[in-house]
Design a binder for these strands. Structure first.
Lengths: 230, 230
DNA sequence: TTTGCGAAAATGTGATCACAAAATGAGATT
DNA sequence: AATCTCATTTTGTGATCACATTTTCGCAAA
């Protein structure tokens, strides 16, 4: 199993080699470019990124500590495999974390910010209509992130992104086998609830959005997808 | 500000230098050995750990990616400072995460495991009587961890420990200025609820335990502690 | 005493190398 | 054809070094 190709990623000036490697790998995993079970090697990535083992190893270490990658007993590094039980854990954890994050953001959101969130939701539907699943996925993440980060003291976002990263690989598989992945109806519901400053309704809409989106796959569907990926 | 001394830590045979550095630093931060604002240097720690910069830098990178340390603009690495608002975020996040983790563990706990948890609770009170705050803290963490990890598919524990790590530094300050830190009454309540397999009661007991324990400090108390630490 | 300046020291970064362990693959044996 | 053996290659690990930047500190000027 060889090192997969990495999506393009502009390197901002002044960014360290390590940060660049980390950001690029993270992005690749987040959008499902890596399949579960794929093994990544330090030298392989160093070559792909035109750098040396040192910064790449640091990036891999960071990715493993946030659950995006997994170190085997052999010390080899692989993209974690997902079981139906693990998938269910990830979905329920997403709901717990994001309901909480949404609640604690409600009070901080300005009308202006809510408008921006509504615009992001429109762009999601645009991307879906255009058939660009990856772009729709990125926009969907932006929708959620923009809500949660409205809380200036928020510290939950890194944890949420950790869960997103762990869902990335199966998301990539799903994108290959399912034509429509998102049900965005709940987004408008969430936006309306934000306007009303109704914490309970916001949390409920977010939970439903997750449950009916990627979380909507039942155990059998997941098992089928996982079999396809094997 | 110089590198603080590290608590003792046995190095298991076969453990890599990097893992050792990571484990030791993590433990130190978790039990509050480092004060907020303390800066740590790669070479300083490499010397303290009798190794070289490479594995230490990797350990520091990992610790920053789980929120235990913070990289400044200067690229210097420091123990994050805590504000009252951030403290409140951490406590409410602990409650959200641990209530969720406890709920999802209830169905998996055997009578035998519940007995072991009860024994851990006894040991907490022993350590408190003995006046060993650090040992009581470790035992308290073991109490919580043992419950949550009863769920074999659980993936929430790393996130919970991330929050514990972020609370570590203020915990160290609190231990210096407060004689009694824990109210363990809620532990027995949680154990009883576990025996009854009552998810709601377990979650409520855990939430109350956190709220009345370290979470019991109100904003003014925290502000006072932070002033003392400055 | 305070402020400004410049040399020295400290620090983060990343490439390279040597070493040990693991994986791979070719050829011989059953 | 399947399995075992051993040499080769690949891989992770960690120490070291050079470079650029930042910080520190002593000393002179205001």
């Amino acid at each position: 199993m060889k090192t997969p190709t990495l999506p393009l990623f502009d390197r901002p000036e002044g960014m360290t080699t390590h940060d660049y490697a980390f950001a690029r790998l993270r992005q690749a995993i987040m959008v499902g470019s890596f399949r579960p079970g794929t093994s990544v090697t330090i030298r392989g990535l160093a070559e792909a990124l035109e750098s040396s083992p040192t910064p790449v190893r640091e990036a891999l270490r960071q990715l493993t500590s946030i659950g995006a990658l997994q170190v085997l007993e052999n010390r080899r590094i692989v993209v974690p495999r997902i079981t139906p039980a693990r998938f269910e854990e990830l979905i329920s954890l997403r709901i717990a974390l994001e309901s909480h994050a949404a609640r604690r953001a409600v009070a901080h959101l300005t009308e202006r910010q809510i408008e921006r969130i509504s615009a992001i939701d429109d762009s999601i539907e645009d991307e879906i209509r255009r058939g660009d699943q990856a772009a729709a996925l990125i926009a969907n993440q932006a929708f959620h992130r923009t809500i949660y980060t409205a809380n200036p003291d928020q510290i939950v976002m890194p944890l949420i992104e950790s869960v997103w990263l762990q869902l990335g690989p199966i998301l990539g598989i799903a994108m290959e086998h399912v034509s429509e992945l998102y049900v965005v109806d709940r987004h408008r519901e969430a936006i309306e609830a934000l306007r009303r400053r109704d914490e309970d309704a916001v949390a409920a809409a977010i939970a439903a959005d997750i449950r009916e989106g990627i979380g909507g796959f039942d155990q059998q569907a997941i098992a089928r997808l996982l079999k396809l990926a094997a």
